[in-house]
Computed example of a mutant assay.
Amino acid sequence: MGKTATTVEQQIALLESRGMTFDCEIEKVKETLLDIGYYRLGFYWNPFEIDDKHNFAQGTKFSDVVKLYYLDVDLKNILNKALNRIEINLRTQIIYIVSNEYPDLPTWFANRKIMNSNFVNQFPKYYDDKFKDKNKPIKKHHINYPNDIYAPAWKTLEFLTFGSIYSIFHSIKEEGVKFKIAQHYGFKSLKTFRNFFQTIIFIRNICAHSGLLYDSNTPLEISTTPFFKFNNNNKHSLDSSIKVILYFLEKISKSRKDIIQDEIFSLFDSFEENEVIMKIIEEKIGYVKKI
């Protein structure tokens, strides 16, 4: 689409002129375009385009574009269940391990002896009146303890973003403390743990904000690890990110990991009869079915 708004009828005519086949009733096509949106759906017909004029490969069906869209939606829903579990667990372990390392310093996250100065300097920008008013347990804490600058870590960190939790981990001065956290998840390398942590955040943000998942590639290469092998040695693919997610989840609950893994594989395998979608799953996501 250009800079001029178009009607749904004009959108259908444009797609048809570019070679798309509408293999369902036009009223259903209109309903879909008005539900999902022409622009958003465009991310899912992109793999079917063959030139810079946005013409489609011969035989491109509207129904396959919609199937790809819902594959993406369903995969995000499955991964969200795993990512929520991982986020809560990582948050809990960081709070627990560091707080018990410094039991007499309940607000260790704002202590310059423990944390890098840059983080401590920036923290008041996040822990402002709006933050305290928005989060009831924090607000209640300051009513009960009006002289406290901050609530203890086990209260405060529950209301920070997942990205902020990573920043807290990264800003801890003592490498030994960070290594205790990494060891909890079976890591012998802090560098690999950080890399996996960042991968989790990257995929979590896509899923949480309804981003484009099937075609996502991590900006950072996922660290080589003895925990699993990369399909086609692709260390940026979504399949490799899924392996990272499943690794973390197994450290939390093996039964939950098995359930999520089965759901992912079942979703991919449900398209076995659709060569077009299966090719995208294999080439874009990087999935290789185990036989």
Rank of each mutant, 00 (worst) to 15 (best):
F109Y: 15
D23T: 02
P106S: 00
G19D: 10
K76R: 15
T92K: 04
S63I: 10
L68P: 15
T7M: 11
R40N: 09
T6G: 01
K53E: 14
F43P: 07
L14N: 05
I95F: 03
V73N: 06
K61E: 12
P124Y: 13
N89C: 07
E101R: 14
D23Q: 09
G59F: 10
V120M: 07
E31G: 06
D104K: 14
N121Q: 08
T32F: 13
Y38P: 12
K67A: 10
Q58R: 07
F109R: 04
K81Q: 13
F22D: 06
E16F: 07
F119M: 03
Q58Y: 12
N118R: 14
K113N: 13
G37M: 11
T6P: 00
Q10W: 03
A82T: 04
A110L: 00
P124I: 14
Y39N: 02
G19N: 07
T32W: 12
L79C: 08
E25I: 02
D52F: 03
S17Y: 00
I36H: 07
L71M: 14
S63H: 10
Y102H: 05
E31R: 09
L34S: 10
I78P: 09
Q122H: 11
V98F: 01
R85G: 03
M115C: 01
F48K: 03
F22W: 10
N118K: 15
F123W: 07
E87Y: 01
L33A: 02
N77S: 12
A110N: 13
G42H: 05
T92Y: 02
Q122I: 04
L14A: 09
L15P: 00
I94F: 02
E49G: 04
N55F: 12
T7F: 05
H54C: 11
V120C: 12
I78T: 01
T107Y: 15
V29R: 08
L105G: 00
K28P: 00
R40G: 08
I78C: 08
W108A: 05
N116H: 14
L105E: 12
K53V: 04
T7G: 10
I36F: 03
L34F: 04
A110V: 15
G19T: 03
L90C: 08
K76E: 01
N80H: 09
K81N: 12
F48C: 05
N46I: 03
V120Y: 05
W45M: 05
L14E: 14
T21K: 13
Q122C: 01
N89V: 00
E27G: 15
K30E: 07
I97M: 04
K81F: 00
P103I: 04
A110C: 08
N100Q: 10
F62N: 04
F109K: 03
R18T: 06
I86M: 04
I86F: 07
I94N: 01
V66I: 15
Y39K: 01
K67G: 05
S17A: 13
R112F: 00
L34G: 10
F123V: 06
N80R: 13
K113Q: 11
N80K: 12
A57T: 09
K61H: 07
M20S: 04
A57V: 11
F119L: 15
Q10F: 02
S99Q: 09
P106R: 00
N89M: 03
T92E: 02
P106V: 01
E49N: 08
V98K: 02
W108D: 01
N46F: 11
I78R: 09
